[in-house]
Amino acid sequence: MKIAIASGKGGTGKTTLSTNLAKYLSKEFEVVLTDLDVEEPNSGLFLNLDEILEEDKFKMIPKWIEDKCTLCGICQKSCNYHAVIQLGEMILVFPELCHSCYACSELCPEEALPMIKQKMGVLKQFKTDKLNFVESRLEIGQEQAVPLIKETNNFVENNFGKEVLKIYDSPPGTSCPVIEATKNADFVFLVTEPTPFGLNDLQLAVETMRELNKDFGVVVNRSDSNNKLISDYCDSQKIKIIANIPNKREIAELYSSGEEIYSKVPEFAVELKKIKSFLINELKVD
C-alpha cells in the first residue's frame, strides 16, 4: 500500500502529519516514509533515526568532445530545451536546462556528445526498528526536481516489498514535482487549513488528483471555528474529511523544536487513530 501526503499550499502540515503518522503506524506495521520534497526535505528533522546508507544520485548530461565534432549543427537542432547551443566553433551545454533525453547524444553522427554523469542530489536511508526513512535532497543550483523524485521512487520500489506500508511526503503545489510524487500512490491525503488560502489551494489540489484519477481524502490541520469553510466545500464535492487536527499553540511549539507531537498532545493522537482506522477499514491495510 502506498499513501501520499500532499497539499496545494505549503506549510499546511504535510511533514507534521507524515512524520507523526509514520511513527505512530510503525508501532504496528512495517513502514517506510519517503520524503519526496527534494527541494526542501524536512521530514528527517522530525525523526531521530540511524543513517544506514548514503548515495549520490546522478543525472545524465551530454559532454562535448571538440576533437570529434564537425560542427554539423544536428545537436542544436535536436534539443528542444535549448540546452545545447552552437556558438561559433563551440558547442555549449547548459546542464540545468537538459532533460537527459539523449537526443543530441544519439543523433550526433560523430559520437561527439557522449552522456556523462552529473550529481543532482544525495539519497539517504535511515532505520530504527520497524520505521524506515528515505530522503533525497536536490543539490542547490539544480533546477529540476522530477528526475531526483523518480530515482527516489525507484529506490523505494526496489528495496521495500509489497508488505511494507509506504508513506510519501510530497512537495507542495500542483505542477510536475507533485505529479511525479503522487502518481503511483494508491491513496492521497490532502492536508489543508481552514482559511481562504487553504481552501483555494485545496481546490487546486483536488483538481490535480481528479486529473490523475486518484483516490483521495482530506485532513484539516489547524482546525478551528472556521472549519465550515472546508467542510462545506468537501460536502459539495463529496470528498471525505478523514481527520481534523486542532489548532493549538502547543502543537506549533512542539513542531518548532522538532519534537514528536502525538505522544504529548492526546487530541493529535486521536486524529492519527482515525487515520489508522481509515487505512485498516477502507484501504484494507493489514
Partner: peptide, 20 residues
C-alpha cells in the same frame, strides 16, 4: 522565516541559492 527546525533548514538552503 520562522523559528522552527524546518524554517531554519529551508532558510539556509534557499539563501545558499540567493548567494549564487
Amino acid at each position: 522565516t520562522e523559528p522552527t527546525v524546518s524554517g531554519i533548514h529551508d532558510l539556509r538552503r534557499v539563501y545558499t541559492l540567493v548567494k549564487k
